[in-house]
Nucleic acid binder design. Structure first.
Length: 486
RNA sequence: GGCCCAUUGGUCAAGUGGUUAAGACAUCGCCCUUUCACGGCGGUAACAGGGGUUCGAAUCCCCUAUGGGUCACCA
């Protein structure tokens, strides 16, 4: 048997933004193809015309592009198996359905929604299958209905006995009794195929070798198998992916406002970091490595590393990974990415040297949205900060002794003409020497007095340098007054 | 409810009959240190429960519990 070229596809429906689960599906599909030198195809599944969302296709393109997951074939780039949008393939499906009708594997159904509704009501709540009311229609009746233009659907005829078994690449052997299978609709009354049908047809026509999708499709896969068999087509490899849930084990959903890829990007997470993190949710490499570029993932990826159990999306770990990526950025690109956040924070209205800010921040930021809060004190000193902050056990400072230390520091700083980190450091360290105290006893009060915060992106020297001489001394004096007025 | 699937520390996870049950994030402690962060060292913490099979089970089988998925003219 000759090796077939591996082809996978990402087949989203254009109904909104790509949440994390979708992104991971696309990623794994891409990786499965690329790890074996295959092709990754993008196909738009818009057979539900009532759910179309304006601009959703563009969002998909943008997301894929940002994530670096580039497709070899798709609506925008073309390919030999187009069109890649199902609504543009609409006329292609009916003949296949009719072929099945011909083979007695499918049949016309003229039942309207009302009847189906009642059927459901009469039989209880869930687990109700279609009663095959139309299966027994005679050819004449069918013909008459067709000529009378009675709306119809085409249903797949399921076997009544036995079971269907298939090998899932991650879940192993799955067996479902045929009694569980409903005579599902293949062609809807609006002439469009259902997802289940279009999927099989398109995957076959597009020569997809690995059908990769979320595990919510595991139990409907037997229906697909039956379809492939009815047509006499090769059954592809099914790779079902475990779910990604949020804390508490609930499924992530855009309805509930769970983060989409784009949301995370907007918060200042780097696409590479998100991709890296998501790749590790549900898949693990043979070794213990955690940092992977997309290229490296494509080299290391293996279906056998995919796990069966769902995993929780952990923001903390994403934060960690994002910081790893941020710290690897060179200064210029970090600075460029930070700029919009400086603007948002109001730093543009100050004379503060932003490149110096970046140097301090690159070591401390987990994601960019944190920046405004980290630098707010530079713009405006918090006026009513808690003076108890001056008391620091390890620094050996108290609210009381800080007064004297601050006064001495002020004296040392006032004469400085060339105000920079070095001169500030020298002046302050000289003071430490002169008074014979611990470094922290001088530096902690100074830093606190000019920032009003428990922690800052830099120490006393750096913050004083950023603020400039005038502002620094002014803040120290104000804090001193507050301390004395206690 | 029927069917399908899953279950290793708070989280991600390695592990495929014999291990002191890795590693990472988080957390805690210590060190370093001008705060925070970084870095270094160390700690707490797991095989859902019960039966088997076996000389030996996290690994195989069964039952129970819990969790999830699915039962549409949605994908």
């Amino acid at each position: 048997m000759k090796e077939k070229r591996v082809r996978t596809r990402y087949a989203p429906s254009p109904t909104g933004s790509m949440h994390i689960g979708n992104l991971r599906s696309a990623l794994y599909e891409y990786l499965i193809a690329k790890s074996q030198g295959g092709d990754f195809i993008l196909r738009i599944e818009d057979t539900d015309q009532s759910r179309l969302v304006e601009g959703a296709i563009e969002k998909i393109y943008d997301t894929l592009k940002l994530a670096g997951i580039q497709h070899d074939e798709g609506p925008d780039v073309g390919g030999d198996y187009g069109p890649y949008v199902q609504s543009q393939r609409k006329d292609l499906y009916l003949p296949y359905a009719l072929e099945l009708v011909e083979k007695k594997q499918a049949y016309y159904c003229f039942c309207d929604k009302e009847r189906l509704e009642e059927l459901r009501k009469s039989q209880g709540h869930e687990g109700v299958k279609y009663d095959r009311h139309c299966l027994s229609l005679s050819d004449e009746e069918i013909k008459a209905n067709l000529e009378a233009k009675v709306p119809f659907v085409i249903r797949q005829k399921m076997p009544q006995e036995g079971s269907v078994t298939y090998e899932d690449a991650v879940f192993g052997t799955i067996t479902v009794p045929c009694s569980e299978l409903e005579d599902q609709i293949l062609i809807k009354s609006d002439g469009f195929p259902t997802y289940n049908f279009a999927n099989v047809i398109d995957d076959h026509l597009m020569k997809i070798t690995h059908v990769v999708r979320g595990s919510e499709y595991v139990s409907s896969t037997p229906k697909y198998i039956l379809l492939y068999e009815a047509f006499g087509w090769d059954v592809p490899v099914f790779v079902h992916l475990p779910l990604i849930t949020k804390e508490g084990g609930r499924k992530m959903s855009k309805r509930e406002g769970d983060a989409s890829f784009m949301d995370l990007v907007e918060k200042g997470y780097l696409p590479e970091a998100i991709v890296n993190y998501v790749a590790l949710l549900g898949w693990s490499p043979r070794d213990n490595r955690e940092i992977f570029s997309l290229q490296e993932l494509a080299e290391a990826f293996d279906i056998s590393g995919i796990s069966k159990s769902p995993s929780v999306f952990d923001m903390e770990k994403l934060n960690w990974m994002n910081r790893e990526y941020i710290r690897k950025l060179d200064m210029d690109s970090f600075h460029a990415k930070a700029l919009p956040w400086y603007e948002k924070a109001g730093l543009y209205e100050t004379n503060i040297d932003l490149s110096k800010v970046s140097k301090l921040l690159i070591e401390r930021v987990e994601y960019f949205e944190q920046i405004p809060e980290m630098v707010d004190f530079l713009i405006k000193m918090p006026e009513d900060y808690d003076l108890n902050m001056f008391a620091h056990k390890k620094m050996k400072t108290t609210v009381e002794n800080s007064v004297g230390f601050l006064e001495e520091s002020l004296k040392a700083l006032e004469p400085i003409e060339d105000w920079n980190v070095q001169t500030i450091e020298q002046a302050l360290m000289d003071t430490v020497q002169r008074l014979g105290v611990k470094n922290g006893q001088i530096l902690w009060p100074v830093r606190t007095a000019i920032s009003g915060k428990q922690s800052t992106p830099g120490g006393a020297f750096e913050i004083a340098d950023l603020l400039g001489k005038e502002e620094t001394l002014s803040r120290m004096r104000i804090s001193l007054i507050r301390l004395k007025n206690l």
